[in-house]
Design a protein around this nucleic acid. Structure first.
Lengths: 131, 131
DNA sequence: CATAATATTAGTATTATACTAAAATATTTA
DNA sequence: TAAATATTTTAGTATAATACTAATATTATG
């Protein structure tokens, strides 16, 4: 897994907005607040990294993409728990983690998670291990 | 404080190698394993951000540069402690933190530091709060 | 001063990001 | 289905960060 910040944001946006029907480029462009041509480029990078697939304009994460998403989110939420346990406000912890979650090693995250007792939920009540 | 990864590395290299006499561009270039022209560019960015000064070829951190360095290192070592406490190997924790220390909020770091009992030393025995 | 070492400038390249504008495709609706 | 509308793709441009080579300028040192 090796993604840039924008790729990370895009992966998260795709996952957090595909409840029901899949997204298309134009949806992603507006969710990410960029022009379609910018979204096109970004999605192309995700396509070539095999994180998403595109079929008839419908964008969906691949299995690998789901793993990448899960890894990012687990890092995000694990560290959020850690920060809030230290007294950091949960929303500050969240915005803080958005900047770094995608850069963390899976193994270190797993160890921290274990050390803090394998909680299932982040401070916002979302699952540390999403599907 | 807003630095890139290479700027961060350069700041750290400068601080960790200025015992005694100050460094010059060529020293930094070889320490960072880049060509002088690349180092020149990088140092120019640090100059314009007022993180370093250059006098007669001698490169030295400004007071602000020292603060930036300190902030990075405190984040680095605080998180190293946190990770090793969770069972992460200290060298893995170190290389992990090199990727993200410069992106962390000072405030969150301070809170974590307090929560873990304000230790003075990182797992390698170096001060959490450098000069 | 001449040579050697250093630093600077100029020019090129790549990657990530993002835009405008035009062209090509698809979709919807009258 | 044809026309209108929406969406996607392509092309071209731009910027910032990174990094290179090669040439030039500057500074030290013998």
């Amino acid at each position: 897994m090796d993604v840039t910040k924008k790729e990370r944001d895009c992966i998260v946006v795709i996952h957090e907005n595909s409840s029901g029907f899949p997204l298309r480029l134009s949806d992603i462009a507006s969710l990410m607040k960029v022009k379609p041509s910018t979204a096109y480029e970004l999605l192309n990078r995700l396509l070539s990294k095999k994180i998403i697939t595109k079929e008839k304009g419908m964008i969906m994460p691949t299995q690998y993409g789901n793993r990448v998403y899960s890894e990012i989110i687990t890092a995000h939420r694990t560290m959020e728990i850690l920060l809030t346990k230290s007294g950091v406000n949960r929303d500050i912890a969240c915005s803080q983690m958005e900047k770094i979650d995608y850069l963390m090693d899976e193994l270190s995250v797993e160890k921290i998670l274990k050390q803090i007792g394998n909680p299932d939920k982040c401070p916002h009540g979302k699952p540390v291990k999403p599907v």
